[in-house]
Write a protein that binds this DNA or RNA. Structure first.
Lengths: 211, 211
DNA sequence: GTCTATACTTCGATAGAC
DNA sequence: GTCTATCGAAGTATAGAC
């Protein structure tokens, strides 16, 4: 190789992951349709054509982000139920893990909310399977507790969302609450993770306590 | 007026409301950016130019929808706290009213979720005031109960979302749950309104019961 | 792997006749 | 109030040089 030759094909290791991270922020903040590939490129400091070099389409880029966020959550949840602990202990661990997952990525939380509003039209059957896995895990732990008479009988889906929806909505509404605080001069206290976990556990315990 | 003259300006009473209803469905199902004025026009069976005759812009149409949905909810909530009932009774009424509001318009529920994901960028200070009103009403009833020692102390925002977020997410996820049922052959029971109200009241009562 | 330039499409919005 | 026709701005995606 001539020393005078240029190096036109030097790999830039951070490029692909920088695209993914920036795209997640944009999709989360604006939604799929309102996100432009131009803007992702500019913010990730790559050329727009580079995005199409790494991903076949805007949609494929979006799908890659969704998969990479869902999969590890389901794995961690499965690890908890694999151990044969009592239902109330498993539920405490499930709550801890779910709150950590929700806190792990603010953009993904927004993507998740939009996906629900969309009726999950962007999710393939593999993604739906991951979602069903999360739902099924919580549900089976509650069902086990009910059959052992340590939990009272509850509507499965309503119980599931009673545990997790408050955390989702509380975290997701943080920017809106901040705007209300700023605009209207009221103080709405935030909460750190241990406060949120404690609250969710308290709610779960009280909701499921036998009559 | 000559009998031969045409009547080019016959009013079509249903036009404006048909635009509003169709636009709400589209904004709910697709989000603001993905919704096209062309499609609203086609589905509402009006000419696109008619939309711009009734509303100055796509954004103004969206805002009109948001206002018309938020305002009556806040009114009904205010009517409840105006009466001087005990906190637990007020809370039961608040829950009933909020569940009814959530069930009243499926499109608006999706619009609401997307607005949260957006950080409420489409909402002006008047809309934020309405949102703050909903939040403040629940919050003040809980605070009153706590100061009367009939409720235990709780984090205001977490308590608020513990009561209302499960209902929001349960209703909003109905299409996704249906897809999971269809794709994966599992049965996820739905719930009618009285079941949802009872569940939310049970959760609120148990969460707020003094230790 | 990276860039420039551009083809192709869609969409919000308006002009102007009736 | 209602229509047709169209402008102009963005935006996805690709071709092709280096």
């Amino acid at each position: 190789m001539s020393p005078l030759a240029r190096r036109p094909a030097a790999p830039a290791p951070g490029t692909r992951s920088r695209i993914l991270a920036t795209a997640a922020e944009e999709f989360g903040a604006r939604g799929f349709a309102a996100t432009t590939v131009d803007r992702i490129a500019r913010r990730a400091r790559v050329n727009k054509a580079m995005i199409y070099y790494h991903f076949p389409s805007k949609r494929a880029l979006y799908t890659a982000i969704v998969r990479s966020h869902f999969a590890p959550i389901v794995e961690r949840l499965a690890a908890i139920t694999a151990q044969q602990a009592p239902p109330d202990q498993q539920l405490d661990l499930l709550i801890q893990t779910l709150v950590e997952a929700i806190d792990a990525s603010k953009p993904f939380l927004s993507i998740f909310l939009r996906e629900i509003a969309d009726g999950a039209v962007h999710l393939g059957s593999e993604d739906l399977a991951l979602l069903a896995g999360i739902f099924g895990t919580v549900r089976s732990v509650i069902a086990e507790g009910t059959s052992q008479k340590v939990f009272q009988p509850v509507h499965p889906a309503l119980a599931h969302f009673t545990i997790i929806a408050p955390v989702i909505m509380f975290r997701a509404t943080a920017p809106v609450r901040a705007r209300i605080e700023a605009t209207r001069g009221v103080v709405i206290p935030d909460a750190d993770r241990s406060t949120v976990v404690s609250h969710a556990r308290m709610v779960a315990r009280r909701m499921l306590a036998p009559q």
